[in-house]
Design a protein around this nucleic acid. Structure first.
Lengths: 157, 157
DNA sequence: CCCAAATAGGACTGAAACAGTCCGGTATAT
DNA sequence: ATATACCGGACTGTTTCAGTCCTATTTGGG
């Protein structure tokens, strides 16, 4: 579902102008009800704006270079997890300092992911420049090495 | 489960020396069978090494500063998703160029996440330096802004 | 003024993933 | 020999998720 959102948002970035949900579904090969659902979430999150009624449709809320893929992903999956250490009365879970230290640092991981994602804009996705294609080629070795490991779920979140 | 892995690995990085699964479970407040399961996966992926038999236990396979959290996370969840466009006969799913272009760029997102995660080592998690604490403070604004959005699942996976 | 087009919102369902547990097997110090 | 501790996998109940469908509500056009 998250990947659908990225595909749809990128398509909106590439073509520009309002699109009916049905048209987008056809053009992106995504089943229509699902595409509609995704677009609703994107609208709710403020990534796209919607126009109801006849001749209505969806369009990006801002210009593609000002929308990071993090916004698209978080619109679908909710905010990247922030494990709060203890907002509860019992701080018993914190009596082991080393463990608590880890949980405090957990947000560093989230921040890193968030930052990495926010640095990729829909403009990058829709109109990849040559400079960035190089960086893709360079990282393809890593990608292939990764593929060897375990065969499990997809999704980013 | 992924967060358990990070907690356990960080604990191994912080203390050093072999630890029995049971001890680790107690020290990290993680239910023992689950901790054991996680450790097995980490061993399988080569993040930690195991010593069987009496006086056995787990220890990091390498020094903490040479193990990125990406290794820990990928050991549990499998490699970060790589949506391959088409290794199939029918290239029908590629007849819409804009759509296919997106899928090609999808791996850029994965690469970015992978890179961000690999730049955080277990040493960073176990012994956070002051310099990096600054970067955490700086990014806490973002974190709080994120919190406002939608109330959904956690996990990084 | 009325109708058709199009989104908003939510209820519902079947399938998949996941956390957590448990057991029989194997290796190894004492 | 024996107690200790990891290895491997099977099993289960819960939860999440993708996908569908139905009923408003809004809006442009004849």
């Amino acid at each position: 579902m998250t990947d659908y959102a990225v595909v749809l948002a990128t398509h909106l970035a590439a073509v520009e102008g309002p699109h009916a949900a049905r048209d987008l579904a056809v053009q992106t090969q995504i089943p229509e009800p699902t595409a509609s659902k995704v677009l609703k979430k994107l609208a709710r999150a403020g990534v796209v704006v919607s126009q109801r009624g006849a001749k209505g449709g969806y369009a990006l809320a801002r210009s593609p270079e000002h929308i990071g893929v993090n916004e698209v992903i978080e619109a679908i999956e909710g905010p990247i997890a922030v494990t709060e250490c203890s907002d509860d009365t019992t701080d018993s879970s914190c009596e082991y300092e080393t463990n608590c230290g880890v949980r405090a640092n957990w947000q560093r991981i989230n921040a890193a992911v968030h930052k990495a994602l926010s640095e990729i804009t829909l403009a990058d996705m829709a109109f990849p420049g040559t400079a960035e294609l190089v960086s893709i080629a360079r990282s393809s070795n890593e990608a292939e090495r990764m593929r060897a490991a375990s065969p499990q779920s997809n999704d980013v979140h």
